[in-house]
């Protein structure tokens, strides 16, 4: 299915309200960026509204659904609860940074193949959480997967296909490791 053809522009924030800007240096999806941010805005808004990176989703704004999960210093956090003003020096990875070159990350590919995404709105958050889980635990049990994903709500799937996808991703990543070690 095609996207709606609408140019994404950055609406920006008007200066007349006396906003205090702060210069921060961050690593975003592996690239160093120097940004001028409004300190009290949240990381989620910084990504979506100011940088036009709408892959990270907003589901509740209160840390209760996990749709906005990103990796901050390698750890999954709710970007709706992180202030831009605390980010100087931060290393942030979002869904847009998950692909390895043109290839899908195994986690993405597994979700694609196993029906891990239906409406797809919780998917970016699920993928970031899964990435973090598999980094810590290469071979999680079903129980461990359920535990790790319990902060990511999904209204479509009943989680069954998501859990299968995580298991398949783990398998794919282990195989990849073995092939790489051999090669």
């Amino acid at each position: 299915m095609q996207c709606v053809a609408v140019p994404a522009i950055f609406p920006g924030w008007p200066g007349e309200r006396g906003d205090i800007n702060k210069k921060i240096r961050i690593t975003l999806n592996g690239q160093e960026r120097i940004l001028e941010v409004v300190p009290y805005r949240l990381l989620l808004d910084l990504l979506r509204d100011e940088m036009g990176m709408t892959g990270t989703k907003e589901g509740c704004g209160t840390g209760d659904c996990g749709a906005c999960t990103v990796l901050l210093h390698g750890k999954p956090v709710n970007s709706c609860l992180v202030f831009s003003g605390e980010l100087d020096g931060a290393d942030i990875v979002t869904i847009e940074g998950l692909k390895i070159g043109p290839e899908l990350h195994p986690v993405q590919d597994a979700f694609r193949q196993d029906g891990g995404a239906q409406c797809g709105y919780c998917t970016p958050g699920m993928l970031m959480m899964t990435t973090a889980l598999l980094r810590e635990n290469e071979q999680p049990t079903e129980e461990e997967i359920r535990f790790a994903l319990s902060g990511n709500l999904c209204r479509c799937t009943g989680y069954a296909k998501i859990i299968q996808a995580v298991q398949r991703a783990a398998e794919m990543m282990r195989e990849k490791k073995i092939t790489e070690a051999k090669g």
Binding site: M1, C3, I9, T54, T94, L98, L104, R112, Q113, A117
Partner: peptide
């Protein structure tokens, strides 16, 4: 058959209503 909309969804490139930005809005 693998869902044909899945790739857009797993890469975060699918644009939802909540994501939409229009010029001059």
């Amino acid at each position: 058959i693998t869902r044909v909309d899945a790739e857009e969804k797993v890469t975060g490139s699918a644009i939802y209503g909540y994501d939409l930005v229009l010029p001059d809005m």
